[in-house]
Design a protein around this nucleic acid. Sequence first.
DNA 1: CCGTAGGTACGACACGCGTCGTACCTACGG
DNA 2: CCGTAGGTACGACGCGTGTCGTACCTACGG
Lengths: 107, 107
Amino acid sequence: MPDDEGHPALAEMELGAVLSALADPLRRRVVRELAAGPDGGERTCSSFALPVGKATVTHHFRTLREAGLIRQVDRGNSRMATLRRADVERRFPGLLALLTAEGAGDA
Amino acid sequence: MPDDEGHPALAEMELGAVLSALADPLRRRVVRELAAGPDGGERTCSSFALPVGKATVTHHFRTLREAGLIRQVDRGNSRMATLRRADVERRFPGLLALLTAEGAGDA
DNA sequence: CCGTAGGTACGACACGCGTCGTACCTACGG
DNA sequence: CCGTAGGTACGACGCGTGTCGTACCTACGG
């Protein structure tokens, strides 16, 4: 299972990269919204309405993708992002729960 | 339960600060070694033999302390560090397990 | 065919952070 | 009393990174 265009395989996911990616509030928000949606739910990059420019959005999504947290597929004009829920849960059990807990009256 | 000299209370721990603190390999190593030891086990800063200068060690331990991951107490000449295991586990369940898994044949 | 919208690539900039050296402070031991 | 060892405080430096503007590319819709 090779890296298909920047998506690390399950065994290639590094904790350091994941934690660094999740250290940014914007990227954490993306993962949280993705996790709140249905499993396998696809969303465009722009649908998150992040308060930054387009180039910065691309940068954040690349960071998330290269950490192995999301998967991006070309869908015609847009590039859809999906949470790699099962992979992340298998490699780092409980991690997603920590993210979803944030911003739910807990933080 | 106020901040006693840089130690955030349980409710004051922020996920962002914790993830940022854990994004550094050296700090992750400190927490991992602490977690591998007995609960409440005290260790001096220098006992970790981090490959950096003294000033940098102080910086890393301050980051860990201000994130709420460790507690530091003056013990005569040295300053002992202890893992806030119960607090961390209560606030961010499963987080410590992710760290201990790293470097145990898993990563 | 042309315009527009979603994303990417590249370069630039500013701030943060990991690192260090040095000076200083506080025990502890001759 | 003086030296030494553990830590801290402060200032400095370099690189990483979050941010942006601009140019460009690729569908999709008149």
